[in-house]
Amino acid sequence: MSVTREAVMALKQAIEGIGRDGARRFGGVERDRVSVGIPEIDQILGGGLMHGATHDVMALTPRDLSAASGFALGLVGLLSPREMPWVWIRQDAAGRELGEPYGPGLAGYGLNPAKLLLVKVPNAKEALRAAEESLRCQALSVVLLEPWGDPKQLDLTATRRLSLAAEESGVALITLRSGGHSPLGSSRTRWEISAAPSRSETEFEVGLPAFLGRLVVNRQAGAGGPGGEWIMEWSHDKCLFRQANSILGVSAPCNGSAPETPSLPHLRCAS
């Protein structure tokens, strides 16, 4: 049994090596990894998030898409230097349903909106094509791909293709998706994100954006563990994530115990 495991580990190592050699052979730039900001996660990821790889960000439920896109933008902030352009590929439907990116908000989030190239595509096929085209351009730092729904075009072959393109050019690919039966493909990491209450003293202030993130797949080279679950905060001035586990117990909504129906006489409904 243990022999088998050892064999499997050796094979894994060998496959890793092929991938890395391949990256060199194709001329991929071996850049350093970037720190996520939380030492525990960095250690599990084997030294930080990899450039030139695919990272999946999944919203746990469709309602968590805003939080998931916030987390994905955080990854963009980690992977993208301020002066490098990055691409956000969205389907038209996503813009209609969830709103368009807002420059002043992105600036407040620690990103440089002037360097954003928003690519709007009519369907998933065009999204894949645009992603592959963008991944060939080394002047970009990150390609954020946001297909709408669960398109069947984004299958194993397509994701593998995109991952190879990302490895070849050293441009990171982040796919932002809303659940579904998406195959794993060849992503290095996959995060499941749901919204988490922010940390604040009173109910009259909203703290830093917080996410409940679960690392469900971790296939980065030198990974130090299978995964985990954290409550993370995005600190926009440092452009890093921060752990906020300590507040788990006290983060219950302040008026979460409010009655279900507006029984109080002074509550009125404005429509």
Partner: peptide
Amino acid sequence: AEERGTSLAACIDRLVNRLGEAGVRSPLP
């Protein structure tokens, strides 16, 4: 950069060529 990948302008051209003028945009304040 020229040998291995496309330049930024070329990448934008290819995307615009495919998706139209409104397909690739940047936010300006």
